[in-house]
Design a protein around this nucleic acid. Sequence first.
DNA 1: CGCTTCGCGATTGTCGAAAATCTATCGAAT
DNA 2: ATTCGATAGATTTTCGACAATCGCGAAGCG
Lengths: 261, 261
Amino acid sequence: MPTDRQADPKEKSLKGTGARFITRGFSPQVLTDQISRVLTESILDGDLEPGTQLLEMDLQQELGVSRSPLREAFRDLEKKGLVVILPRRGAFVKEITARDVQENFPVRGNLEGLAARLAYGRLNPQDLATMRTALEAMKRAGRSQDREAYRQNHQLFHDIFIDACDNRLLIEILQKLRMHRLWYFVSYRYQKLDFQMALDVHEQILELFEKEGSDPQELELLVRNHIDEALERLFGTSASSVARRPGEEEKAKPGSRKQAE
Amino acid sequence: MPTDRQADPKEKSLKGTGARFITRGFSPQVLTDQISRVLTESILDGDLEPGTQLLEMDLQQELGVSRSPLREAFRDLEKKGLVVILPRRGAFVKEITARDVQENFPVRGNLEGLAARLAYGRLNPQDLATMRTALEAMKRAGRSQDREAYRQNHQLFHDIFIDACDNRLLIEILQKLRMHRLWYFVSYRYQKLDFQMALDVHEQILELFEKEGSDPQELELLVRNHIDEALERLFGTSASSVARRPGEEEKAKPGSRKQAE
DNA sequence: CGCTTCGCGATTGTCGAAAATCTATCGAAT
DNA sequence: ATTCGATAGATTTTCGACAATCGCGAAGCG
């Protein structure tokens, strides 16, 4: 009774390439999670382009699963911010609009600044060394115009002190905000323009982390501003800048939408 | 062509005694949403105590729905942070731990401060009047020891400038962070201790909003700090405090490491 | 007597089909 | 020719049943 093989002869391949891990010895994973993982990768890798609809019937056949776990996986992806679910319409891969970027950066900047402040003093030598390595790799990638390498190491650099902030809620939120690789595609424009400046800022940040008696507040503002400034470089507008007079708005609040929930 | 949704008269006759809404001719809402709404209220109202398991079979019978929309509603509630789903175990109403509070306040303070800064200059006279009214109601509630009235008006006060920040992402995150009424139960301890001070702070905040040439940064810090300080009053620890001399710290985050779910 | 193993009831996970709903197309009337 | 309405197709939503798994208690073993 222990090694009860799958009596059902039909094979359950989760991905075309052949991932039949259902009957793996220990696979405590629920189908929903596996589907969610596969779709997450597909979206992040760009296999599923933004805007495309996730047809239940197609995916059901392609993945060899039923509707129930598929639909629940959609909810998971919605929670991650990767898809949007329109009732009675279906699930669509989230499209990143200019507004999304303009809204994301200020929030992310503030929270990463907070994370940096909280992380100060909690970084062990290993962490600092990793950040130093990542920064050097960023510099090399900048010289050789290796965008992907730059992106990876830039992400690693931030990952270190974010993970060290010891606030799981903060880590979770930032993970969602930094999920889309698209952020890096757009911010690439900025990096291209001010590559040297971006590197300088990260050098300053790392030095503040390394130094003994740094001012956590200075560190926080440095991290926050370097993200805010990236947004300003991108759009010219200062969606997060401190002062915006009430006169120069483009569209005032369109009515009061009382979102009951 | 705007896929405008028709105004739906909210009447949640889904819970309570029974539920004979299935056969109602007009039910534009998807069942999952209705279930999610009912359960959300039940949790927030305290009908479902933290830690209790949401039995699929029981709820299925009580609500008169099938398991599919029920399970999808669980995912929605998980997204809202109201329940936690353990694979092959079930869905449980989220329990708020001390650590959750300690992690929530710094993030919330930071983001509400950001929201205040962004909202400055975007508040119309109507908004300011509402905040003034809410603040006066808070003062009255404070004198008469009406905790619930204080909580409601305090929430309203913050709702105004948060909704005015014009950053939907920020609004969405803060909505989730401020979802639990439990936050207010715990912060009640603080309010009880420093009632007058809390009122003074909100008076200052409102005055900065009302004044013409206020410093948005000052406003941001005021909002942020008044939340951070609430946490300090609660626990004594300064989990988010800015000034912490690297020399005088000692606690390497001792307790509250457990809570492994 | 303590520990492990087995079995049973309870609960969640998965499935495929039926029902409800939406979108698109075609046809008719103005 | 254009607009409105009805029909058909496609898709989502919901359902009830079956299968897999977990927790707990009892029995077996050292």
